[in-house]
Amino acid sequence: MNVEKLMKMAGSVRTGGKGTMRRKKKAVHKTTTTDDKRLQSTLKRIGVNAIPAIEEVNIFKEDVVIQFVNPKVQASIGANTWVVSGTPQNKKLQDILPQIIHQLGPDNLENLKKLAEQFQKQAPAAAEDDEDDVPELVAGETFEAAAEGGNTQTS
Rank of each mutant, 00 (worst) to 15 (best):
G105E: 02
G86Q: 00
L109I: 10
D107V: 09
I96P: 00
D95T: 06
K114W: 08
V83H: 13
I96D: 06
K114D: 14
A116F: 10
L104I: 06
Q118R: 12
K91I: 05
Q118P: 00
T81C: 08
P124H: 15
W82E: 14
H102S: 11
L112D: 02
I101A: 08
L112R: 06
Q103M: 12
G86N: 00
V84W: 01
K92C: 04
P88E: 01
P98Q: 07
I101Q: 13
Q99T: 10
N108A: 05
N90P: 01
P106G: 08
K121S: 13
V84G: 02
S85Y: 05
I96Q: 00
I96H: 01
P106Y: 06
V84Q: 05
E110M: 09
S85E: 13
L115F: 11
E110K: 09
L109V: 06
Q99I: 05
F119G: 07
D107S: 14
I100E: 03
L97M: 12
L115M: 14
P124Q: 15
P106F: 04
L93F: 15
G105A: 07
W82F: 13
Q99Y: 05
N108M: 11
K92Y: 11
F119Y: 11
P124E: 15
A125L: 04
A123L: 12
L97G: 02
P124A: 14
Q118C: 05
I101T: 12
V84S: 03
K121R: 15
P88A: 06
Q120N: 14
Q94G: 06
T81D: 04
L112K: 09
L109E: 12
Q99W: 05
H102M: 05
S85G: 10
G105H: 01
T81S: 07
T87A: 03
K114Q: 14
A123R: 14
D95L: 01
K114P: 02
P106S: 15
A125T: 04
K121I: 03
L112C: 10
P88C: 02
K113W: 07
K113M: 11
K113Q: 15
K91P: 00
T81K: 15
K91W: 03
N111W: 08
P98T: 07
K92R: 10
N108W: 06
I96Y: 00
E110F: 04
Q89D: 15
L104W: 01
K92T: 08
W82L: 15
T81H: 13
P98W: 05
Q89F: 04
L112Y: 08
D107F: 04
A125G: 05
A123E: 12
Q120L: 12
W82K: 15
F119L: 11
K113C: 07
A116K: 11
K92L: 08
L115K: 12
L109D: 09
